[in-house]
């Protein structure tokens, strides 16, 4: 299942990240996870949350440029080699990863411990099909947000 991630354009100047976060806080919107891509010039704040549509409206109303992007959340085993196991099928299917980051969840203990990684593929639909076929557990919003 594909998830909608919000990307927000931020100017590289003090206070910009806080401005966006304050807005969401005021609207009682909880951010599940985020990642920040930054350059000397600007930053792109990537957010995952349950209420992404409401968050998008709130941010846009305040003048932020916001884009919804489809990403996949892949389950990985929390052990050495867990990520490598996932990357195998991705490479085998010839999928292009634009970026990835970790989702802050941990389930189970010991050998059963699981984490989630967020992937942005150039072609999310093709990625979804080949990863499912390869037996990778693609997580849904229900798995992540509840």
């Amino acid at each position: 299942m594909k998830l909608n991630q919000l990307s927000v354009f931020l100017e590289n100047k003090p206070g910009q990240l806080k401005k966006a976060c304050d807005l969401l806080a005021k609207e009682q919107i909880n951010i599940q996870t985020l990642s920040m891509a930054d350059t000397r010039q600007f930053g792109i704040l990537r957010l995952l949350m349950k209420e992404w549509e409401r968050a998008k409206a709130v941010l846009e109303a305040e003048g932020f440029v916001v884009k919804a992007t489809e990403v996949l959340a892949l389950e990985v085993s929390d052990r050495p080699g867990g990520l490598a196991d996932i990357l195998g099928p991705i490479e085998a299917a010839g999928l292009n990863v634009e970026y990835m980051y970790a989702f802050a969840i941990l389930r189970g203990v010991g050998a059963d411990a699981k984490a989630a990684l967020i992937f942005r593929f150039s072609d999310p639909d093709a990625a979804l099909a080949s990863l499912k076929a390869a037996g990778v557990n693609v997580l849904s919003g229900v798995d992540l947000f509840n």
Binding site: Q5, S7, F9, A37, T39, Q41, F42, I44, R46, V65, V66, K67, T69, E98, Y99, R120
Partner: peptide, 15 residues
């Protein structure tokens, strides 16, 4: 000013 049409969520496109 960055417009919604030209905003991309990948750094390389904006760069």
């Amino acid at each position: 000013e960055v417009t919604p049409e030209f905003f991309s969520d990948t750094v390389s496109v904006l760069e």
